[in-house]
Design a protein around this nucleic acid. Structure first.
Length: 868
RNA sequence: GCCGGCGUGGCGGAAUGGCAGACGCGGAGCACUCAAAAUGCUCUGUCCGCAAGGGCGUGUGGGUUCGAGUCCCACCGCCGGCACCA
C-alpha cells in the first residue's frame, strides 16, 4: 500500500491474483447474493466453490507475474479411502497460510498431488482380485472432491500422481542419475524383512523391531538389494541441520541428529595371529587402548566365520552352534539391552598395537556386524558392555583412567574401591590417564589426540567417524511401485536402461498373481521381464523389484513447479523461481523418513547442478493429530470421523474454524473438545454484522467510532505476526473480539451506519477468509463488493490508531498491584510517579513503610520497593 | 541409560520479564417470547467477608530481579526420540 498521510480507513484494493492490472469488471459476474436468511451454510459453500473453480481463483501466477513468490505445501496424501479428520487438520493449516500470503501481495503456489504408489492399493487389489490402478484413481477422485468441498485454495492445474508413468518416469531418471554418480548400488547384506508384507524394509521403516506399515515383527534376511548411498551425505545431512534451527521444529532437528548418530574417534588396526591382513576397529575412546584386554567380533560377520574356520574342530562347532542361536533371535530380542552377555572364544589372538599384548578374540552378539567394522577392542574397565562381558567370562580388567583425580568423575574417591572388576560399574567418566606409558597424566581429549597422532605416524590407525545411519535400501518386492530401470544380462552384468527408453512402464496386472511371495510379482510377467538390452542387443531380464515409495516423495515438491513437462523431472528455471518450499506442513511421523530422504535427494540434485539450494524446506511445521479419547483416530479402532459427513452437517467453514481454534498447531486436538456448533455460532454472528452494516460501500472510515477502529487496526497490525507464527487459534480469538466489538457498536454504540462498522466488517471478511473462506467471501459480497475477497490486499494499520490516548498503569508495591491509574499515554516518568504517590490506595499501601527504591516505566508500571 | 519437550481455572487454551487466566466451551442469572428455540446482555480462579476490601494462586523447593507463568538450579510427573552403535 502506498504511504498515505490521511487517516482513511483501510484501503481494500482488490487485486486479482493471476494478472495484476486486470480490472474487477473483467471478472466473471459476481454470484448472486441472496438475502441472508434464505441461504444456508451449505448454499454459501457451494456457491463459492463453484465461483473459485470457474474463475481458477487460486491458480499461481505465471512468468509475467512480478510479485514475490511463496511456495506453500502440505505433505501430499496417500489416497487411501475417503478424507477424514486427519486430512482436515493437515491441509487446513497450509491453506490458511497460502490464503494469507495472497493478501500480502505474493504470487502463491499451493499445489496438491497424491503419493499414489504403495502397499494399501496393492493389498486392496489382492483382496478384491482387481487392479491397484482402479482402487487408487477412484480414491484420488474422491479426495479431490473432498478437498474442493473443504474449500482448499489449490492450484488445480498442477495436480500430480506418483503412479502416473509421466511421474514415475522421472523417478527412474533420478535412479539413473544416482547410479551414474555411484550413489545407487547393489549389495548382498542382511536386510530387514517383513514376513507379512513379504518385502524388505529400509532401516527407517523399522519401528521398535516392527514393520512400520503393518506392525509385524521384522526378521533379518540375506539378500542382494539396491541401495542409495545416503551415508555419503551423512556429514552434510547432519551439519546442515544447524541452518534450519529456528525454522524447523527443534524436535525434528534433534530426531534427525539422533538418527544420523555421528561418533568421532579413531580406526585402529590390530594384527591377528595367523592372518595376513590386520583387522580394523573403530573406537570413540582410543585413549583407553592400553586398557584393551580382549577383542570381540560380531558372530554374524564374515570375519567371525573366517577366524572360526581356522580354529580347532571343537571351536568351530561351538561357534556354529552359537551363530545359529544368535540368528534365531528376533530383532526385538537382540535389541534388548538387559540380557546377559553371551559369546564364544575363537582361540585366536590379536596384538595390541600400543603394547604388543596378546588379546584373545571372542565372538559375541553384543557387537553388531553392520556398525563400524563389526569388531571392537574391548576395554572392560571403561566400557560397561565390555565390563559385563569380561565379568561373565572372567577376562582381565585393567584401569587406565584415574577418575578420582581433581576434576574427575569420582573426584576424591578411592580408586581401589572403585575397581570395575569388583563393583561391576565401568569408569566411563573423565579423569587422568594412568598405566598408559607416556600418556599418563593426560586428560581424555589430550590423550585421544595424542593416541591418534601416534597411530597415524605408525600407520596403524587414523582419526575416523562412524554413523548410526545406514544406506537407504530402496528395492521392494512388490508390484505397485516404480520399476527399477536396470537390466540383468546373461553374463551376470547389470546395466541401466538408457534414459531415452524411459519410462519402464509397469505391465498390466492381467494374469499376474500379486500375492506377496518374497519375490516381486513383476518377475512373473514373462513378456515384460524378457527384453533386450538396447545398448548391446543382448537378451536381458528386467529388474523385477520396484522402488520404495519414499523415492517418489523425495522430490515431488519440485515436480509441482513444472508438472506437465516431458523435458525435465522439473524445470531448473522454475525451481530457481519457486523453490525451496517456503512453508512445509506435515506430521511429525515423517521426522526421519520422508524429511531425511527429501533432504538427501535435494543435496544430490544440488550436486548435479540442477538446483541452487541444499535444503528443500525452508520452514517446517508439524501439526498435531486429531485424537479421540486420547487415541489416534484410525479405521481399525473404528473411530475415524469422515470429512464428508461433517461437511454436510456443519459445513466446511465451521469445521475449519473449529479446528483452527482448537489449540496450538503442533498440539494434538481432542475431537470431543472441538465445538463445531460454537464455530457455527460465530460464523453466523460474523455474517450478521455484515448484513447489518448500513453505511455505503467506499465510505471513509476516518469519522467512525474510534474505539471500534482501534480494535480493527490493532488486528490489522497483529494478524500478520499471528499467521506467520502459525498462532491460528489466537487469530480466531482476535477475530471474535473484533466481531464482538462490532456487535457492541451496532447495539449500544454508534450504530450500524457508523463507518467504523463497515471498516471493521470488511476487515473481518478479509481475515476470516483465511480460516472460513466461504463465509469470508459471502460477507465481502454482502458488504457490496465484487469477489474475490481472497484478492484483497492487506491494508496497513493506521499507526495513529495503534497508540492509545490514555493507558492504564499498574502501581505495584513490592511487585504486588495495589492500584491502577488511567494516565495519558505520553506521561513522563516523573509525572507518573507523582500521580502514583498521590493515589489514595497507593498511599494506604505505603503507610508506615520506608520507600527504598521506585521503578517507573511510563506509562506501563510503577513499582515501589519498600521496607518495614 | 542418553537426548529433547511439556506441566496455567471444571475444560480447550491466552500472556515482547511488567494488572495471570485473552478468546471460547461448560455453568448461573437476566431480557425478548404465551412458551420454546434462536438471539442479545451480565456474572463465572480460589478462600475470608453482608460489603468495602483483603489473603492465596501458573507441578514442588530454592535462586536471580524493583518485579518471574516467563530467566537460572534442583526435584517430581507426563510425553516423545534414540538405545548392546564400540
Amino acid at each position: 500500500m502506498s504511504s498515505r498521510d490521511t487517516l482513511d480507513g483501510p484501503d481494500f484494493r482488490a487485486v486479482p491474483h493471476r494478472q495484476i492490472g486486470r480490472h474487477l469488471s473483467e471478472h466473471s459476474s459476481a454470484p448472486h447474493t441472496e438475502h441472508a436468511e434464505s441461504m444456508s451454510a451449505h448454499d454459501i459453500q457451494l456457491k463459492w466453490q463453484q465461483h473459485w473453480a470457474e474463475n481458477e481463483t487460486f491458480r499461481a501466477g505465471g512468468h509475467d507475474d512480478e510479485r514475490p513468490r511463496k511456495y506453500i505445501l502440505g505433505m501430499f496424501p496417500y489416497p487411501s479411502g475417503d478424507l477424514h479428520m486427519g486430512h482436515a487438520i493437515n491441509y487446513l493449516y497450509p491453506d490458511i497460510v497460502a490464503r494469507y500470503w495472497r493478501h500480502r501481495g505474493r504470487n502463491v503456489l499451493n499445489p496438491i498431488g497424491w503419493d499414489s504408489f504403495g502397499l494399501p492399493a496393492e493389498n486392496a487389489a489382492i483382496k478384491r482380485g482387481a487392479d491397484p490402478r482402479e482402487w487408487t484413481y477412484k480414491n484420488i477422485e474422491q479426495h479431490k472432491a473432498g478437498f474442493r468441498g473443504y474449500g482448499m485454495s489449490y492450484d488445480w492445474s498442477r495436480v500430480l500422481h506418483t503412479s502416473d508413468p509421466e511421474y514415475y518416469r522421472w523417478n527412474q531418471w533420478l535412479f539413473l542419475k544416482m547410479y551414474e554418480r555411484g550413489l545407487a548400488y547393489r549389495k548382498k547384506s542382511a536386510v530387514n524383512w517383513c514376513p507379512k508384507d513379504q518385502t524388505v524394509l529400509a532401516n527407517e521403516q523399522v519401528v521398535d523391531g516392527r514393520c512400520e506399515r503393518c506392525g509385524t515383527e521384522v526378521v533379518k534376511k540375506k539378500l542382494t538389494q539396491w541401495y542409495f548411498r545416503i551415508t555419503e551425505y551423512a556429514d552434510r545431512l547432519l551439519d546442515d541441520l544447524d541452518t534450519l534451527e529456528g525454522h524447523w521444529p527443534h524436535k525434528v532437528l534433534q530426531m534427525q541428529r539422533n538418527w544420523i548418530g555421528r561418533s568421532t574417534g579413531a580406526d585402529v588396526d590390530f594384527v591377528i595371529e595367523g592372518r595376513d591382513e590386520p583387522v580394523t576397529v573403530f573406537s570413540t575412546r582410543p585413549d583407553t587402548l592400553h586398557g584393551a584386554t580382549f577383542f570381540v567380533i560380531a558372530p554374524d560377520s564374515d570375519l567371525a566365520a573366517e577366524l572360526a574356520s581356522g580354529a580347532s574342530d571343537e571351536v568351530r562347532e561351538r561357534f556354529q552352534g552359537y551363530l545359529e542361536t544368535v540368528q534365531k533371535q528376533s530383532e526385538i530380542e537382540r535389541q534388548s539391552t538387559d540380557r546377559p552377555k553371551t559369546g564364544v572364544f575363537l582361540e585366536r589372538y590379536a596384538t595390541n598395537p600400543v603394547n604388543g599384548e596378546r588379546m584373545p578374540i571372542w565372538a559375541a552378539d553384543y557387537v553388531l556386524a553392520d556398525y563400524g567394522h563389526g569388531a571392537v577392542m574391548a576395554v572392560p574397565a571403561h566400557d560397561q558392555r565390555d565390563l559385563d562381558f569380561a565379568r561373565a567370562f572372567d577376562l582381565p580388567v585393567r584401569v587406565v583412567v584415574d577418575t578420582t583425580v581433581p576434576g574427575g568423575a569420582n573426584e576424591g574417591g578411592d580408586l581401589a574401591e572403585l575397581d570395575p572388576a569388583d563393583t561391576g560399574v565401568a569408569l566411563i567418566g573423565n579423569g587422568r590417564m594412568t598405566g598408559s606409558g607416556d600418556l599418563d597424566g593426560l586428560a581424555k581429549d589430550e590423550a585421544i589426540a595424542r593416541t591418534i597422532e601416534r597411530l597415524t605416524a605408525a600407520g596403524t590407525g587414523r582419526a575416523a567417524k562412524n554413523y548410526r545411519l545406514r544406506d537407504w535400501l530402496i528395492s521392494r518386492q512388490r508390484f505397485w511401485g516404480t520399476p527399477i530401470p536396470m537390466l540383468h544380462l546373461e553374463d551376470g552384468s547389470v546395466v541401466p536402461v538408457p534414459e531415452d527408453r524411459l519410462p519402464v512402464q509397469l505391465p498390466s496386472v492381467e494374469g499376474l498373481d500379486l500375492r506377496p511371495k518374497g519375490t516381486s510379482p513383476l518377475g512373473a510377467a514373462e513378456s515384460w521381464v524378457r527384453t533386450v538390452d538396447p545398448a548391446s542387443g543382448e537378451p536381458a531380464l528386467r529388474d523385477a523389484d520396484t522402488m520404495d515409495t519414499f523415492v517418489d516423495s523425495s522430490w515431488y515438491f519440485l515436480r509441482f513447479l513444472s508438472p506437465h513437462s516431458d523435458q525435465f523431472a522439473f524445470d531448473p528455471e522454475e525451481a530457481k523461481r519457486w523453490a525451496p518450499v517456503d512453508g512445509y506442513f506435515g506430521g511429525v511421523e515423517h521426522a526421519i523418513l520422508h524429511l531425511l530422504y527429501a533432504r538427501f535427494i535435494t543435496k544430490v540434485l544440488f550436486d548435479l547442478g540442477l538446483i541452487d539450494f541444499e535444503e528443500p524446506f525452508s520452514n517446517l511445521v508439524n501439526q498435531g493429530m486429531v485424537i479421540m479419547d486420547g487415541a489416534k483416530m484410525s479405521k481399525s479402532k473404528g473411530n475415524l470421523v469422515e470429512l464428508s459427513d461433517l461437511l454436510g452437517q456443519y459445513g466446511a467453514d465451521a469445521l475449519r474454524l473449529g479446528l483452527a481454534f482448537a489449540g496450538p498447531v503442533e498440539d494434538d486436538k481432542e475431537w470431543n473438545g472441538v465445538s463445531l456448533s460454537g464455530a457455527q455460532k460465530f460464523l453466523s454472528r460474523a455474517l450478521r454484522v455484515a448484513d447489518e452494516t448500513a453505511s455505503p460501500v467506499g465510505a471513509a472510515a476516518d469519522a467512525g467510532d474510534v474505539t471500534l477502529r482501534r480494535i480493527t487496526h490493532r488486528l490489522l497490525a497483529d494478524a500478520p505476526g499471528l499467521v506467520e507464527q502459525t498462532k491460528f487459534n489466537v487469530l480466531v480469538a482476535r477475530l471474535m473480539e473484533l466481531v464482538n466489538g462490532i456487535r457492541k457498536t451496532i447495539d449500544t454504540g454508534a450504530g450500524a451506519s457508523d463507518t467504523a462498522v463497515r471498516e471493521a466488517a470488511e476487515t473481518v471478511a478479509m481475515i476470516l477468509e483465511l480460516i472460513a473462506p466461504h463465509t469470508g467471501e459471502e460477507m465481502w459480497a454482502r458488504l457490496g463488493h465484487q469477489p474475490s475477497v481472497s484478492a484483497v490486499q492487506w491494508p496497513d494499520a493506521d499507526p495513529a490508531l495503534l497508540v492509545e490516548d490514555t493507558v492504564t498503569t499498574a502501581v505495584q508495591v513490592n511487585g504486588k498491584v495495589r492500584a491502577t491509574l488511567d494516565v495519558p499515554a505520553d506521561i513522563s516518568d516523573a509525572d507518573l510517579e507523582a500521580a502514583a504517590r498521590a493515589d489514595e490506595k497507593v498511599q494506604r499501601a505505603l503507610e508506615g513503610k520506608e520507600i527504598v527504591r521506585v521503578i517507573v516505566r511510563a506509562p506501563k508500571i510503577v513499582n515501589f520497593a519498600v521496607k518495614g
